[in-house]
Design a protein around this nucleic acid. Structure first.
Length: 466
RNA sequence: GGCGCGGUAGCCAAGUGGUAAGGCAAAGGUCUGCAAAACCUUUAUUCGUCGGUUCGAUUCCGACCCGCGCCUCCA
């Protein structure tokens, strides 16, 4: 089977191939940097990360643009409240966002682009839309006239035909000619940041930045455009209207949308006290890998119920996989290899690939890894996992971690150098040999206090950091 | 009201027209000087409810109930 994605546009699972050469042109909606991003945002960004990694694992090159929305009403309001310029204000949260991404091991897009760096490009685009009769001006603001775009509603599958025809309202009373029209360019307001451009002073509306930056860096037709489900309407619908009016070409071939995250079965809201940023969770002592695992473990098209029990479970689940990986790397294995084991390793790796190929079914992909770990552990116990079986198993887990990226511990735990630890272990081994178990246990406890966990195995002592 | 997503064991969660993956938790066991790790066994005769189609439905159809999202700037 080949790679398939559910396309919001067609409401079907479709086979995916990039349109040109071997590179995927991917655009994803990034954060609006008016405060710290919350875990709901990171659910979507984690999905994008898994998407990136799986596209690459599938043999494709990546050309990915993610925008940073650094001008909007909230930003203008908050910056003014703090008596900062827009740039000063957004720099803080842009930096915070990048740090959070690094914490969660989210890859950075090839092009990370800011709206405010593309004001001139947006003005150009709006001028072209105006030349094409797609806009009108009202009180100094420029609006997109939806009546000029017949395909409006094709992404969100809303039928606006009834709404649009003859829905003219009094222009003196309403600034927009039609309720569905949206601002491309907003007239400057007293005391608000604005830019002088070829279409006059003002600032861009929300939707235009994505169309302009996507087309500028990736061309007129994207392979994939992705974001959260809440963006389907109106944001992405409006992007389509603008872009396709501009180019006459299909804006994006595939539209992928991540479902919402809930917290303890409820929607996340500041008023409910269940609103968490990544920093909140790290501050509570949860490991970034556990958060990453939890966010990635539920397939992106299912809403994800984020719970602290779940986070705890995620931490334990990772531990299990890490224990297996450690054993795989250190176990003394019998000579030769077992053909059946080799076949099962191959089958597990294939199951992993098949799962992710199927619209990124991460839950099933994880199951393949866990089932394999159990199988291989049993085989090792039974002496049916030979030295020749190791390489393929290691390769499978590398393939696993190239996508999930949860096996390597993070944090500043490399305090004590290994040789010192090894020396203590040797000391304990001597004590054990002399059957001085009290002394051996004492050393083990001391190491444990340093965050070093010892495991006695048939093939010697294995240790790991907590 | 319109559009969309979902309701599966204590929790998280996959899945298929043919009789329920995986993880966590819990209990018992094996191994071990003791631990740890690992492995084994047990935990859904049942997949929101009610009908229908079918030899057979959790999976298809219909109705209903519940949760969530969007319907003018929220991932």
């Amino acid at each position: 089977m080949s790679l398939r994605f559910y396309n919001t546009l067609s409401q079907r699972v479709e086979e995916f191939h990039p349109a040109r050469d071997n590179t995927v042109r991917l655009y994803t909606c990034g954060p609006t940097v008016y405060s710290y991003a919350h875990i709901g945002n990171f659910r979507t960004f984690t999905f994008v990360d898994i998407l990136r990694r799986w596209l690459r694992a599938s043999g494709y090159g990546l050309d990915h643009v993610m925008n940073i929305t650094d001008v909007d009403d909230k930003i203008i309001r908050n910056a003014a409240a703090e008596k900062k310029t827009l740039g000063e204000y957004t720099a803080v949260y842009t930096q915070a966002f990048l740090e959070d991404c690094a914490t969660l091991r989210l890859e950075v897009a090839e092009h990370l682009v800011k709206a405010t760096d593309h004001i001139g490009d947006m003005a150009d685009a709006i001028a072209r839309l105006t030349a094409g009769q797609h806009t009108y001006t009202s009180d100094g603001s420029v609006y997109f006239r939806i009546a000029t775009f017949p395909g409006y509603g094709k992404l969100s599958h809303n039928d606006f035909s009834g709404n649009l025809a003859g829905a003219r309202v009094d222009v003196d009373e309403y600034e927009k000619a039609d309720a569905r029209d949206f601002a491309l360019w907003k007239a400057p307001k007293e005391g608000e940041t604005s830019w002088d451009t070829k279409i006059g002073p003002g600032r861009p509306g929300w939707h235009i930045e994505c169309s302009v930056m996507a087309i500028k860096y990736l061309g007129e037709t994207l392979d994939i455009h992705a974001g959260g489900v809440d963006l389907i309407f109106p944001h992405h619908e409006n992007e389509i209207a603008q872009s396709e009016s501009l180019t006459g070409k299909q804006f994006s071939r595939f539209w992928l949308h991540a479902e919402f995250l809930m917290v303890e079965g409820q929607k996340m809201a500041k008023s409910l006290g269940n609103y968490f940023t990544l920093r909140d969770l790290i501050g509570r002592g949860y490991k970034p890998e556990a958060i990453r695992y939890l966010l990635a473990s539920v397939p992106y098209r299912k809403s994800l119920n984020f719970t602290f029990d779940g986070l705890q479970a995620a931490q334990m689940a990772i531990e299990r996989l890490r224990n297996f990986k450690l054993r795989l790397d250190t176990e003394k294995l019998p000579e030769g290899g077992d053909d059946k084991m080799a076949a099962r390793t191959e089958a597990a790796a294939q199951a992993f690939v098949n799962s992710l190929d199927d619209d990124l079914n991460t839950a099933e992909a994880l199951a393949a890894a866990f089932e394999y770990a159990r199988d291989a552990n049993s085989a090792m116990d039974a002496g049916q996992f030979g030295a020749d079986n190791r390489a393929a198993a290691v390769r499978f887990f590398e393939q696993f971690d190239a996508v999930f990226d949860v096996l390597k511990p993070s944090g500043a735990d490399a305090g004590d150098d290994d040789s010192k630890i090894e020396a203590r272990i040797a000391e304990r081994n001597a004590a054990k040999k002399a059957r001085n178990f009290a002394r051996a246990d004492q050393i083990r406890d001391e190491l444990l206090a340093m965050g070093i966990i010892l495991e006695d195995t048939k093939s010697g002592v294995r240790w790991k950091r907590k």
